[in-house]
Design a protein around this nucleic acid. Structure first.
Lengths: 104, 104
DNA sequence: TTCAATAGTCCCATATTTCCGAACTACTGA
DNA sequence: TCAGTAGTTCGGAAATATGGGACTATTGAA
């Protein structure tokens, strides 16, 4: 098994965050996670069911490495949450300003 | 000569804007253009002088096609401006929220 | 005019990144 | 022990970025 890589808050970069959110699918994942509030598994947060598993896994890795989400393994599934406070501390107002405009 | 391609305001997409700004060099270009206020040539807005011309030209094309800047040809050089009002009408608060955190 | 200089664009080969099927791992419950 | 579930990893194909070099358009000078 692999330990998930999460950058420290201060290592989160603006361009990294923008790059992670510049993909429609990842944007929808983050939006879904925020709307839920609770932790969500990867498949639960997936924007559409027919997306290949490996692609989905890849998107979550990118979000994780950009510092946008935190992932922990719980039983057979992953629990994902948006690192809302970390992002807000590092880039106040950014996440809200972006997600305000994200379509459903 | 080629006529520059500029999307209509309503064709500007959120993910397109984020993708365009997710490159450190392009972020610095936009920041420089906004700080200047006036039109700037490509080389004047370039973040560093040693950057290859073709790469710079490519970055400006990406910013242009994302709807972030408007380019017109004036004599031997290009005049670039950020389409600030278009972006602000389409995605209120976005540009400011992003550039607030851009280094430099 | 013609010529050189300047500012960018276009083309194209290389390098990097993304996508996704298939095989694999980790955990759970029967 | 075994099957099922949730995700990861691998690897090849497809897409995209980089940058050198040739090209175009404009200007200013001889």
């Amino acid at each position: 098994m692999v330990q998930f890589v999460h950058p420290a808050r201060d290592d989160i970069t603006l361009t990294g965050v923008l790059a992670a959110l510049s993909d429609p699918m990842r944007l929808r994942i983050v939006k879904a996670l925020l709307q839920e509030g609770e932790c969500m598994s990867c498949t639960a947060a997936a924007p559409c069911p027919e997306i290949p598993k490996s692609t989905l896994s890849n998107h979550f890795r990118i979000l994780r490495e950009a510092g946008l989400i935190q992932t922990t393994k719980k039983g057979v599934e992953n629990r994902n949450v948006v690192r809302e406070s970390d992002i807000n501390l590092r880039f106040p107002g950014l996440l809200k300003a972006i997600l305000k405009h994200a379509a459903e």
